[in-house]
């Protein structure tokens, strides 16, 4: 399998505090990779480094085949990002949001239009093209947000707790979108708090105190830690530490 994310001994220190402690892992093309950990475990810091927003203290990593230290610009063009807070401008229309993001990634107007029609059609939201985003329901916004993260056809999409505050049905639909994207060969790198969502991932890594404590397919992890749910696995791993988080 082609590796799209390769991380070797990636470390980030803030003064005396080691936020990310020599983590190493690989993610294959089209994989849904769950990045789990309690708050303060170092997830966000690791993700920031992979997105080219933070330089590592030591170690190396490549994303979409580009070195995150020396080829940051190329990394940025190859990735999409969506956070818990959504990525939409509430006072702009759906179409204006698409044209803005498309424009920022250097797409031509016709390309944006084509891509927008295609994606809205898929979401069955074509009729909302001219609606102000702020007037749409939360679930729709979230789906639009995910579509926007893909407008420039990135190789990898980073999702930072994308389903926070959304009802179970919408979450379920959202994961269907994630699967659809992965099916087309897009790699998904997702952080989440919901352990049931961890089950949907192809592989998950669990970070505790800056280190990756476990990394495998959910079924293997459950077997290894003799638990019937990911929640159980997480509890075992998190409790095994200094009691923080």
């Amino acid at each position: 399998m082609e590796k799209v994310i390769e991380v070797k001994n990636l470390t980030k220190k803030f003064g005396a505090f080691t936020a990310v402690d020599a983590i190493s892992f690989e993610v294959s093309k089209g994989e849904i990779f769950g990045f789990l950990g309690a708050n303060g475990a170092g997830k966000t810091t690791a993700m920031r480094m992979l997105c080219g927003l933070l330089s590592p203290t030591s170690g190396e990593a490549s994303v979409a085949g580009f070195n995150i230290l020396t080829e940051t610009e190329k990394v940025k063009k190859s990735i999409g990002y969506m956070s818990q807070k959504f990525s939409l401008y509430e006072d702009l229309t759906v179409s204006e949001n698409f044209h803005f993001y498309g424009g920022v990634y250097g797409l031509r107007k016709s390309e944006v239009n084509e891509r927008m029609e295609e994606m809205l059609e898929h979401l069955d939201l074509l009729h909302e093209k001219k609606s102000i985003v702020g007037s749409l329901p939360l679930g729709w916004k979230q789906k639009l947000s995910f579509s926007l993260a893909q407008v420039h056809r990135p190789d990898i999409i980073f999702l930072d707790e994308p389903t926070g505050g959304v009802d179970p049905i919408t979450r379920r639909q959202f994961w269907e979108m994630i699967y659809a994207a992965a099916y087309e060969g897009v790699t998904i790198f997702v952080t989440t708090h919901y352990m049931d969502e961890a089950e949907y991932c192809n592989r998950v890594s669990i970070m505790v105190d800056g280190k990756i404590k476990a990394l495998d397919r959910p079924a293997e992890l459950r077997k290894h830690y003799k638990s019937d749910s990911m929640d159980g696995v997480f509890q075992v791993l998190a409790r095994g530490t200094s009691g923080k988080g």
Partner: peptide, 13 residues
């Protein structure tokens, strides 16, 4: 405040 700055920072801008 709205979190859109993250997106801008991650974009090629």
């Amino acid at each position: 405040e709205q979190g859109t700055m993250d997106i801008l920072m991650i974009s090629p801008l």
